[in-house]
């Protein structure tokens, strides 16, 4: 990372401290706003907007203090039509500094996107298996240390393979997307949800009663049926920490065994 920045941006010395900030930033988005604030302070601007073109995000505008761009009436120019750079009131930022700042911000956003994609499933937007496992281990560790309770729920879609074979992968993907969307909708932000296999999902419900899980599954089923106009079934298994275990592998095994048992009763 250090070599990349130094190699790509020999002029980074124009803005001392920013490269170091990028290395320690908690997120690319935060970094962008920090850069705007620093430039506003250095150039004594009362308002500033950074416009940059990103290969994946397209053109993006960021305004100081995270203000809406639509309220940029204080700006003397229409920032939405400005070239890439940093535009401010009452003045501006010198082109070299603006160019370095924009380039650093583009890299910061690249890093955000890379980090996001390495942790999320592209189809559903839920965590992927690898990052779900990271979060699972962390929850189990905290449960062991502080006695916090949580439930792990594993569920899958009944006869998903037959559904795919009969109606095609396109419809199968749609079902998975609707399930992912409904999980986003139904869960609290403190809960952790992942797609851990083809049609297998897992959730960590913080301090939740297992009695709530059937209602949650009914809600997802209803959403799929309403969106897809077809009937689907789900099977699920639950394990609870810390009462049953605080070992993530054991909790997963318990939940998975109960999922299998639930499927067995349907056959």
């Amino acid at each position: 990372m250090e070599g990349l920045i130094d190699g790509v941006l020999p002029d980074a010395a124009e803005l001392p401290g920013l490269v170091a900030d990028l290395r320690t930033a908690r997120s690319g988005i935060s970094f962008v706003y920090d850069v705007i604030e620093k430039l506003a302070e250095r150039y004594e601007l009362s308002d500033a907007v950074m416009v940059l073109d990103h290969p994946e995000l397209g053109r993006q505008a960021f305004r100081s203090a995270r203000r809406p761009i639509g309220e940029a009436s204080a700006m003397h120019l229409n920032v939405l039509e400005c070239p890439e750079g940093v535009h401010g009131v009452p003045g501006g930022v010198d082109p070299v500094s603006a160019s370095v700042a924009v380039e650093l911000c583009r890299i910061a956003l690249d890093l955000d996107l890379y980090r996001h994609d390495s942790r999320h499933d592209g189809l559903t937007g839920l965590y992927n298996r690898r990052f779900f496992d990271v979060m699972f281990r962390r929850c189990a560790s905290q449960s062991a240390r502080y006695g916090w309770s949580f439930s792990v729920v594993i569920f899958d879609i009944d006869s998903f393979k037959q559904l795919n074979d009969r109606f095609g992968h396109m419809l199968g993907d749609r079902v998975l997307q609707v399930v992912g969307a409904e999980m986003h909708h139904a869960l609290r932000s403190s809960d952790v949800a992942g797609r851990v296999g083809g049609d297998e999902f897992a959730i960590l419900l913080m301090r939740a009663d297992r009695e709530n899980v059937p209602a949650f599954m009914s809600r997802i089923r209803a959403a799929v049926e309403a969106n897809m106009e077809m009937s689907v079934g789900f099977s699920f298994g639950i394990a609870e920490a810390p009462v049953e275990s605080t070992d993530p592998a054991e909790l997963y095994r318990l939940a998975d065994a109960r999922l299998m048992a639930a499927k067995g009763t349907k056959r």
Binding site: S27, G28, I29, E56, L57, G58, R59, Q60, A61, F62, R63, R66, R67, P68, I69, G70, E71, L80, L109, D112, L113, H116, G125
Partner: peptide
């Protein structure tokens, strides 16, 4: 904000 900016057509995000 990153996820919202990734939606097609979104060019700026502000908060209140």
């Amino acid at each position: 904000e990153l996820e919202i900016r990734r939606l097609p057509g979104v060019v700026a995000v502000g908060w209140h």
